[in-house]
Every structure is written in C-alpha cells, then in structure tokens.
C-alpha cells in the first residue's frame, strides 16, 4: 500500500520542531508499524537524510519503550502498543500523523522520542516495598487470597509506556501512579508503608508537572494493558486517608 506520513521532526529538546511529510510506496500489510518506520528510515539513510528517531526495544508489547501518538491516539487505533500494531489496520492511500507523547513532564529528546524519567522518579519516591535482599521469611508464610493476588497482578501489569499521560487531556499520570500504589496497597507485604508511599508518590507526581485527573477515562480507554480506573479511585482514597491519618505533619 501507499502511505503519506506526517511526522514530527525536532532535532533536540531546544529545537522548535515541525511536522514533515514523507511518502512510502511499498508498505506490506503484514508489517508492524515500527517495521514500516524502519523501511522509511532505511530510505532516508540511503538518501543521506537524518532518519526519524523513535523509541522501541522489545517489539513484543511488554517493555513499554515504544510510544508514538498515531492519528490522534496513543499507540494508534488499536488498544495495544505501537510495536503490536500492524499496517493492516490502515488502508492504501491513508495519511498517518505521527507525533511524540505531549506533556510538560515528558520533554522531547528528538523527533518522536521523549524523556519519561519522571516515571522513574515517581517510583523512586516510594514505588517499592522496603525489604533488603536476604532478610525474608518463607514465601508461603504470607498467604494471599487469590482474588487479591490477581487484582494486584492486574495493576502490576502496567508497562510504564506513558500512553495514559499522552491520552489524557490534562497530561495526568494518575493511572500510572495508581497502578503501582494499588499493587502494593492490595498486598499484605505493602501495607506497612502504605501511607508514606502514597503521600510521597503523589508529591513527586505533582512536582513533575503532570496535570490533575478529571475522570475523563481516556487513560484507561487507551491503556495497552487495560489498567482499570478502579485503581485511580483506590489511589484517591489511599491519599486522602494517608493525609488525614499519617504522622507526617
């Protein structure tokens, strides 16, 4: 199939950037979206032009490295990661807009690659259970109801890609933060630090400049791992409870 691509090009974080149009003539429906970009980049390289920079790594939908805001949606028209999106989701002659995630907290590194270090800093603020290596009890001494373990798992499947931020009109990171808070709040191992954790993670989230949640639900609708809005509610009540009852004045 033939495609017209309108791609955001920006040399570095200081550059202003603009949309640039490219044509591709021989795209196979079996290609993944990123393979289509590989083909474009090979053509650009042979012409001596700068290939389009984009983040990607595992290409099997789990590392969370790929991003791309495709035709107005994070990870494109399907609820999956960009690396798992195939060109059969498009038609011959289509024009495809490709932009980076847009958020103050995710500055553009180059072209379509952004810096998601803010997510790492939120985890560093409290997204863990404070246990040192080795000082643990036997794994089966902590029984956890299957239902709870499954719920914690569902929250823990977040891949940290940032599609929630990209989709949200407020560039809010609530779905990401709530998934991690939920995982540890649900599990007995995480209960000891629950107040400190949620206070610290929200504090960091605000510091990074993510917007506030207005419950539009766009994040969950676009999340490739189908993280539920229930987690955001849990984060809300955990935070309120912690703020009102912790000893942290």
């Amino acid at each position: 199939m033939k495609l017209t691509l309108k791609i955001w090009r920006q040399k570095n974080s200081q550059d202003k950037g603009k949309m640039v149009e490219y044509k591709l003539n021989d795209v196979s429906a079996d290609m993944s979206f990123l393979e289509m970009l590989d083909v474009l980049n090979e053509e650009l390289t042979l012409k001596g032009e700068d290939p389009v920079a984009f983040d990607h790594d595992c290409r099997e939908g789990i590392c969370g490295m790929c991003s791309l805001y495709i035709n107005g949606k994070p990870h494109g028209p399907k609820q999956t990661t960009t690396c798992q999106l195939h060109m059969r989701s498009f038609n011959d002659g289509d024009t495809i807009y490709i932009e980076p995630w847009r958020a103050k907290a995710f500055p553009v590194v180059k072209d379509l690659a952004v810096d998601r270090g803010a997510f790492d800093r939120i985890i560093q603020a409290g997204g863990y259970i404070s246990v040192n290596t080795g000082v643990t009890v036997d794994a089966n001494e902590i029984p956890i109801a299957k239902e709870i373990a499954d719920k914690a798992f569902d929250a823990a499947t977040c891949i940290g890609c940032g599609a929630c931020v990209a989709a949200c009109k407020n560039a809010s990171a609530m779905l990401f933060v709530s998934a991690k808070v939920s995982q540890f709040t649900l599990l007995p191992q995480g209960k000891a630090e629950r107040k400190r954790r949620v206070e610290a993670m929200v504090e960091q989230m605000d510091e990074e400049g993510f917007g506030a949640c207005t419950n539009t639900g766009a994040c969950a609708a676009e999340c490739p791992k189908e993280i539920s809005l229930e987690n955001i509610a849990r984060l809300n009540r955990e935070y309120l409870f912690a703020k009102l009852t912790s000893n942290n004045v």
Partner: peptide, 17 residues
C-alpha cells in the same frame, strides 16, 4: 522468598498459597 517479600504478584491457589 525475596520476590514475594518485594510484592511480586505470583499466581496463587484459592487457599492463598
């Protein structure tokens, strides 16, 4: 043991183990 202590949500039986 280490991973469970860290909060890794391994699959469990209905009895919680």
């Amino acid at each position: 043991d280490q991973c469970v202590a860290q909060g890794v949500p391994f699959a469990r039986e209905y009895g919680g183990l």
